[in-house]
Computed example of a mutant assay.
Amino acid sequence: MTKILKVDNLDVAIYETTVDMGKAAADFVQRKLSEAIAEKGSANLILATGASQFKFLEALKEREIDWQKITVFHLDEYKDISDTHPASFRKYLKDRILDAVNPKKIHFLNGDAEDIEAEMDHYAEALKNHPIDIACIGIGENGHIAFNDPPVADFNDPKLVKLVTLDEACRNQQLGEGWFPTFDDVPEQALTLTITSILNCKAISCVVPDERKAEAVYNTLYHDINTDCPATILRNHKQTKLFLDSASASKIDN
């Protein structure tokens, strides 16, 4: 059984299982992409990575979507990691969905570019030229969206893409999800779309399963809107839907 609630502008849907949550999010994203294609003949999409996105991407890959009319961006990438590294977000997206669906165009954020500033400028320009119809994101254990951790999050960021230093909680999450063998192997910096970039998107699908995210989910919904929990800003966006499973929703008061 699905539970529905609304907090400020944020629509929240709670599903019993992660599989059901992923399927519902895929349906929502499919609908938004189809609407954009029907309206203007093409669509622009941002995809997220991480363990939280597994079931959603599995479901999205199975949906009837005209990928040849879709341009894809992604949220972030570690600095100085190649696209063959097991933890690379470019590799993650290629392996889990993009190689299978073959979109019209993919804009990858290259964390190992020789000139990082030029890479970020190029990516920001591509975003300006492709207004995003829907962004698919998650929420970190520390409440971050993309790699906008509390110490670097800015709700009025003048940049669309920036280089950030990851906080300890964020790096511990990457270690805990199994992407790196030791804490010291987790990169200290990453390139990320800013909160400004995310809020500029017409619609946002936010997929957040698992009990380890339950506190961040509670904070997102019920704490003051500030950068102590960057995801709280989603409550101000006009077209965001938060997809939870029973575990990630476990701290929400019935």
Score class of each variant (00 low, 15 high):
H85F: 03
K104R: 12
E125I: 09
P103G: 04
F73L: 10
L60T: 04
P103I: 06
L75Y: 02
Y123L: 10
R63Y: 04
F56G: 04
H122C: 02
D99S: 11
L75A: 13
Y123Q: 07
N110K: 09
D80Y: 08
T84S: 10
D115Y: 01
K69R: 15
N102Q: 15
K105Y: 03
S82E: 06
F73W: 11
A59F: 02
H74R: 04
L93H: 06
P103E: 05
K105V: 15
K55R: 05
D80W: 07
A113L: 11
A100M: 10
R96G: 01
R90H: 06
N102D: 13
H107Q: 05
Y123H: 11
D66H: 11
H107F: 15
E119L: 08
Y78C: 06
K105C: 12
E125S: 12
W67S: 11
Y92L: 04
Q53D: 08
K79T: 13
A59T: 07
F73T: 14
D112L: 03
I116R: 02
A124C: 04
R96T: 15
S88C: 12
W67H: 12
K69M: 07
R90Y: 01
A113Y: 10
A124L: 04
D76A: 11
P103M: 05
Y78H: 14
R96K: 15
N110P: 00
D115K: 03
E114N: 14
Y92N: 09
E58S: 14
E119Q: 12
M120R: 13
K104I: 00
E64S: 12
F89E: 02
K94Q: 12
E117D: 15
P86M: 09
R63K: 15
H122E: 08
L60M: 05
L75P: 02
K61D: 00
